[in-house]
């Protein structure tokens, strides 16, 4: 089965129906292992037990960027290949991505309260994620503002790609701005200095959350295809009764 076969929505629906139960099972299993491992992980000598927040904060932050890349690939599919499922994939990824980005912000802020003494620090990473969250909301506003789905899809695709180019620039600018305005006083968890005892639960949780996103995304895509089928049938019926 190639990508072009999936262009047929009915074929996607049947494939999704076959895959989803397995995906749900694997997701639950991996998340359960990850949760058990993060519960039994030792405390950090510097941060104490609050390091446990990292196991859910980092996967959400990773997903906030991963979902935008998924949407960018879908946007290319919309603009370049006019793949019919790309619109559906892009539209349904946006609210899920926004939810994960919100969770990254929320857990980051709850982690920041014991570490920095304040819920919100204009820390470079938190600020970048906040801007990313605003961009997700803008994209969702765009999807909601337009009635015709294919017209909205093309506009959203352009905006998604412009965002994909801009996100690294924004990240760089915010890092620069942050170093200008405050010396690095916050406690950071460097990626390379992370101990194995933390790294393995973190990786398992990251895989689990990515699987969770895939499951939710495929299920939401199925819903969206059905929603469009409802819309088409209603329009067919309306034109029939008008004739």
């Amino acid at each position: 089965m190639t990508l072009i076969d999936l262009a047929n929505p009915s074929r996607f629906l049947s494939l999704a129906g076959r895959i989803l139960p397995w995906l749900v099972a694997v997701t639950v299993l991996v998340l359960a292992i990850g949760l058990y491992q993060s519960a039994t992980a030792p405390d950090d000598y510097q941060q104490g037990a609050t390091v446990k927040i990292m196991f859910i904060h980092v996967p959400n932050a990773w997903l906030s960027m991963f979902v935008w890349s998924v949407m960018s690939v879908a946007a290319l599919g919309t603009l370049v290949w006019r793949h019919p499922l790309a619109d559906v994939a892009a539209k349904t990824a946006a609210p899920i991505g926004a939810a994960f980005t919100f969770l990254a912000l929320l857990t980051g802020s709850l982690w920041g309260r014991p570490m920095w003494g304040t819920y919100w620090e204009w820390d470079a990473r938190l600020t970048s994620v906040l801007i990313l969250f605003l961009m997700y909301l803008g994209l969702m506003a765009l999807w909601r503002a337009v009635e015709d789905p294919s017209r909205a899809a093309r506009a959203a695709a352009v905006l998604t790609l412009v965002g994909a180019i801009n996100i690294p620039i924004i990240k760089f600018s915010v890092d620069w701005w942050n170093t200008l305005h405050q010396p690095a006083s916050v406690i950071r968890m460097g990626g390379t200095t992370l101990d194995r005892a933390f790294l393995i639960p973190l990786l398992v949780m990251a895989v689990g959350f990515t699987l969770l996103f895939l499951t939710l995304h495929i299920a939401a895509m199925r819903n969206e295809i059905l929603r469009r089928r409802v819309r088409t049938l209603q329009m067919l019926q309306a034109s029939k009764s008008a004739a």
Partner: peptide
């Protein structure tokens, strides 16, 4: 969970 248990529980 130490002194900041409520924050950890709240985020989960």
């Amino acid at each position: 969970l130490g002194p900041y248990a409520s924050f950890i529980v709240m985020s989960y």
